[in-house]
């Protein structure tokens, strides 16, 4: 579905040096990455801000022309045949809408239908499915600018799928969404992938997006692919830790449990770090047995933390 070989993007940046003089700098936003995504895979594409995620997505959609390297999406060279590719991919930008701001959702969809030349029956079926599964029923007549962020995002996802794209790119699809909207979006994407085998590439800051949707993760930093593999492997590579937060009956000295270390004590609350690959159950059992436990919670490692550890 997606084939990338030695993909490179170099920007020439002009910086002000002194009053009138300007100097040219070359910035390698993406520096020779290679990967392939087979049909039906859901891949998380993560990395810190400015790592080259967006630049990659822009090249995969044909917005940006690569400096060098080979690139094929559904067999098409995106930079050369951008509009032909557009019919076969769907793109959702979390930060900006592809819908028409002043028009009701349905008007946007009707226009998409004509633009993409979607056959009537396909359009009706897809719209019905999206409306139902994304809960858009009452929003179809509302102008996009009046929608909340979560509603708008769901509207955007539906818009990207009306023409049955084979590949779906999602750039930060859950950024700024409330818990309910996030859950709805994830559930929908999971079903989409299961039912129709749509290939999905998503960038995100939210590790739980990845955990719930992707079997495969690619990590990019400074324009280079640092990791490409399963989620478990990422934790192993990153030696990331989860956090067990326990509330005890009273203030106690730092408790000592095998397999984890106590990193913080604040009154009756204590923070215990343990390897992300390990199970929390035996730890909880041991704490409950040996100390007066009132409440507890487990915190997942932040994606930024995981990545930060990888390069530490």
């Amino acid at each position: 579905m997606i084939e990338v070989e030695d993909l490179e993007k170099v920007f020439v940046v002009r910086r002000r040096a002194g009053r009138l003089r300007r100097t040219k700098h070359e910035v390698r936003a993406v520096g020779g990455i290679s990967f392939a995504v087979p049909r039906g895979e859901v891949v998380g594409y993560i990395g810190p801000n400015g790592a080259g995620k967006s630049t990659t997505i822009k090249m995969l959609t044909g917005i940006l022309t690569p400096s060098s390297g080979r690139l094929r999406v559904v067999g098409i060279d995106p930079a050369r045949e951008r509009t032909r590719l557009a019919r076969r991919i769907g793109v959702v930008f979390g930060q900006r809408t592809t819908l028409w701001w002043d028009l009701p959702l349905l008007d946007s969809y009707r226009l998409m239908r004509r633009m993409y030349r979607i056959p009537d029956d396909r359009y009706r079926a897809n719209l019905e499915r999206c409306t139902e599964q994304l809960g858009l029923g009452e929003l179809l007549e509302v102008p996009v600018r009046q929608l909340s962020l979560g509603q708008r995002m769901r509207g955007d996802i539906a818009a990207a799928l009306l023409h049955d794209p084979e590949v779906l790119y999602l750039d930060e699809p859950t950024i700024g969404l409330d818990v309910l909207s996030k859950a709805k979006v994830r559930e929908f994407l999971r079903e989409l992938n299961a039912d129709r085998g749509t290939t999905v590439l998503l960038t995100t800051h939210d590790l739980s997006d990845i955990e719930q949707l992707c079997r495969r993760v690619m990590v990019i930093d400074h324009g280079r692919l640092m990791y490409d593999g399963g989620l478990d492997g990422l934790h192993a590579v990153g030696e990331s830790e989860r956090m067990l937060v326990v509330d005890l009956e009273r203030e106690l000295p730092p408790i000592d449990v095998a397999g984890c270390r106590t990193v913080r004590v604040e009154g009756p609350r204590q923070w215990l770090a343990f390897p992300a690959g390990a199970s929390a159950a035996p730890l909880v059992a041991e704490v409950a047995e040996r100390w007066p436990l009132v409440d507890l919670s487990v915190r997942e490692p932040d994606i930024e933390d995981v990545i930060a550890r990888m390069y530490a």
Binding site: K58, T61, G62, I63, R82, T83, R84, A86, R87, I89, V91, F93, Q95, R96, T97, T98, M115, Y116
Partner: peptide, 11 residues
């Protein structure tokens, strides 16, 4: 940045 959204449509 909304220019990019135009570039991913088939028109």
């Amino acid at each position: 940045g909304t220019m990019d959204t135009l570039l991913v449509r088939p028109v």
